[in-house]
Design a protein around this nucleic acid. Structure first.
Length: 433
DNA sequence: TCTGGGGTCCTAGGACCC
DNA sequence: TCTGGGGTCCTAGGACCC
């Protein structure tokens, strides 16, 4: 058994909590946040969960329900959420010897150097600090492996009596089994819908059941990933801390359109826009890509004729040069575009990604050209950073039409945009008048 | 009228080579 | 009449995560 202790700090209903920070009147009231394009529900307050709104619920089916029961609805506001996330993560980084940011609202923490009996009060301090400095409520779970810390976190979140902290490494094997016996197999990190269904059919219903299932069986039906999860349930580490963020392998920018799009020109605009965004991202991370793919698809929820296709090309050398990328993307699009369909979504996928400084030169490339291109992109990126996104961009993306996504209920970018700072309401005392 | 977006890993099967 | 076997690489598809 390892001496290591993994912590998992997870923000409660993160997007909803971000919105509440800037509108405290929403506390204890049902709130939901919608996905891009106001498509479906991706975050729910506890009150909204209690009212039976499922994760991923299509917004249009619940519109009346939202109104009838006074549920507050927000479009997603990633500018705000990213910024709030950074604040939470920096507090966590100061609180533990090592943190691994796992997603926008979660981080694993290395608590191995801490004395076991200090854990509860230590976690409580972190939780309170984050709450009072950022306004975001977090739950913290700890355990001997990441998988156990995930379960502990779940308990901390679900069971009010824990006060948002649950330290699983404090329990002996027997007690641990009793805890695992009430965890549904589908609630284990790494066991998704399909596997959960399959496991239940095989009469493996709880985390404890899975823990005591033989390796060979797991390996046969759940592959090595499933075996890793099971081994972690037994308290042996299979998923260690990631010291460094692993190098990116692909980069995708895609969106559903606000309205269906039928003609090539409009789709070209969207593809150019996404290609240009993706190129920007590459440069920001000091990367280049040498494989580019473009895909388009119709709306699978409709009864219309369906079509989806993808086309990709390998470039002679890695690039992050917007004009080249946009041009290539349009070429690819033209290869797969068929008229007569109503398109709902397009996207650009970069792969074979490498670092700009170790990039291999194409056989017929001239050094001078590359330098000129890099200078130009650097200049444009700098201008866009200072003057605002999209100040300079490819002409083809200038028209913004039907494909623009919907975002009808977006809150302000309170923390990152001068024009959208929260308005300060000064309340005068009656006596002062 | 209206159903998100961005990632990773693993496996099976085909192509190809010797 | 007889028609190998093993290795590698690539891709598509399926599973998972948030």
């Amino acid at each position: 058994m390892s001496d290591e202790i993994f912590g998992l700090a997870d923000c409660n209903n993160f997007y909803v909590s971000c919105e509440r920070v800037f509108d405290p009147s929403l506390e204890e009231r049902p709130v939901v946040v919608l996905s891009n394009n106001d498509g479906c529900v991706i975050a729910r307050s506890n009150e909204a969960k209690a009212m039976g709104i499922p994760m991923g619920a299509p917004a249009f089916k619940y519109r009346e329900y939202f109104q009838k029961y006074g549920i507050t609805v927000f479009s997603s506001n990633y500018t705000l959420y990213d910024n709030m996330s950074e604040r939470v993560m920096s507090i966590l980084a100061d609180s533990a010897p090592f943190i691994e940011v796992y997603s926008i609202d979660e981080a694993f923490l290395d608590f191995s150097s801490l004395k076991r009996f200090h854990m509860p009060s230590f976690c409580r301090d972190i939780r309170e600090k984050i709450r009072s400095w950022t306004g975001i409520p977090v739950s913290i779970g700890t355990g001997r492996t990441k998988t156990l810390a995930k379960i502990a976190n779940r308990i901390a979140k679900k069971d009010k009596s824990t006060g948002g902290i649950f330290n699983m490494e404090r329990y002996c094997e027997n007690d641990l089994d009793m805890i695992l016996a009430v965890i549904d197999v589908g609630d284990i990190w790494g066991i998704g819908k399909k596997y959960a269904q399959f496991l239940r059919k095989s009469n493996i219903n709880t985390a404890k059941d899975l823990k005591y299932t033989p390796d060979e069986w797991i390996l046969k039906y759940l592959t090595v990933e499933g075996l890793r999860t099971t081994t972690e349930l037994r308290g042996r580490i299979c998923i260690p801390f990631r010291e460094k963020r692993p190098a990116r392998k692909q980069l995708v920018v895609s969106r559903s359109f606000g309205k269906d799009v039928t003609d090539l020109e409009e789709i070209s605009e969207s593809v150019s826009e996404f290609a240009s965004r993706a190129a920007e991202k590459l440069r920001k991370e000091g990367l280049t890509a040498s494989s580019i793919a473009v895909f388009i698809q119709t709306n699978p929820f409709r009864n219309d004729p369906q079509y989806h296709n993808i086309s990709s090309i390998k470039l002679p050398a890695g690039t992050s040069y917007t004009p080249e990328i946009v041009q290539t993307a349009i070429l690819l699009l033209k290869k797969i575009f068929r008229s007569g369909y109503s398109y709902k979504k397009s996207g650009v996928i970069f792969s074979e990604i490498g670092k700009t400084d170790t990039r291999q030169m194409g056989l017929f490339e001239k050094n001078k050209n590359i330098d000129r291109h890099q200078d130009l992109m650097r200049t444009i990126d700098t201008i866009n950073t200072e003057m605002g996104k999209n100040y300079i961009r490819p002409a083809i993306t200038l028209n913004r039409h039907r494909w623009e996504m919907k975002s009808s209920f977006r809150s302000s970018r309170y923390t990152t945009n001068w024009d959208e700072l929260p308005s300060v309401r000064i309340c005068h005392d009656e006596n002062e008048k």
